[in-house]
Design a protein around this nucleic acid. Sequence first.
DNA 1: TAGATTGTTAATCGATTAACAATC
DNA 2: TAGATTGTTAATCGATTAACAATC
Lengths: 207, 207
Amino acid sequence: MKEIRTPATTVERLPLYYRCLQKLSEQQVEVISSKDLGNMLGIPSTQVRKDLSYYGEFGRRGVGYEVSVLLKNLEKILGLDNDWEIVLIGAGNLGQALVNYGNFRNLGLEINYALDVDQGKIGNHLGDVKIHSVSELDDLVQEKDIRIAIVAVPADSAQQIANKLVANGVEAIWNFAPTRLEVPEEIEVRNEDLSIGLISLTYHLSE
Amino acid sequence: MKEIRTPATTVERLPLYYRCLQKLSEQQVEVISSKDLGNMLGIPSTQVRKDLSYYGEFGRRGVGYEVSVLLKNLEKILGLDNDWEIVLIGAGNLGQALVNYGNFRNLGLEINYALDVDQGKIGNHLGDVKIHSVSELDDLVQEKDIRIAIVAVPADSAQQIANKLVANGVEAIWNFAPTRLEVPEEIEVRNEDLSIGLISLTYHLSE
DNA sequence: TAGATTGTTAATCGATTAACAATC
DNA sequence: TAGATTGTTAATCGATTAACAATC
């Protein structure tokens, strides 16, 4: 039995294909080749085909990919056909931006709950989402069976929040705090370290 | 003459080293080994040494790295010893979060100017930064010799903004719009596509 | 049939890791 | 000298790309 691991880099590209196909679908495009799809994204056609090949055979030789079929399959692969409950911890500027981030809506994703420690914020709203006290974290995560959490708190409280999230059953954490979270290895952590993006620019301009 | 290209992955890790060293410096730690530095970040010591080796020999065999020396060198390598002028285009929720993002301050970076199309926003402030009309883009970028821009506008106007930025001399763009920007190849573009982070979590939970 | 395009194997390229001489 | 740790070479691992048979 041969183990074929999907490269992490492939997983990063799938959302790009997905969004591109959404656009094509809106434009009533019915069939697209790996070449054309790749061109829209600056990705070689050979890479597009290889990426998709980890999940099945979605195209027709000599023809291309039917947009609706590929879109449906990617939706499934990416887990976007599920109804995820997502909790945000930290209702600061960044938290607010995330709750109101329009591009999640287009993917069928939304942040359902927001928590903060600041008494002054509790009861306020971020977009449609009411801010609750972080003291309700345990009950909320357990009662709603929340599996995905977004950590947008200062670096020095991120680990403590992560511990509580994991203890209550959260399985995936999107971490915006610029710090490494220590969690059990079965927990999926995605670090979104905004400083790296900006520093990579100052780096390249300084070379 | 042998060309030694620094791997892109190395460049991504340098900011992590830098921030870690800042913390160590605050804690009055004077010397650190690649092993200890790596442990703090979940990176093998051998990788730490290899990464640093692209830029010089900063350590002492049998001893380790002097924190202040390595910090100073990384600051230079990353271009953080410069006084960059940075303009933000798009003063929405995300733009606001970026202007107020505290972790840039710690790196000596800050967003100096903010522009928006919305007449209702012009004249308001994001943190300390006054919002100007995007019609002032050309003059501002040229007069202030701005080399770095942050694009936080909707996807459908991102390309047009990028064109104006490049035409006026901007050399590096941090793009938060979920779209590919077509720019001359000498322009550095860093795409920060927030959807990818969240989708990668739904993907892994669906496997 | 001729032209187009997929899916996949094999070759290449690039990044990580192991191993170790140099040296503090 | 013995123990620690760097800097670097060589080996390994993983991802991209080229090439092409299969097939529409």
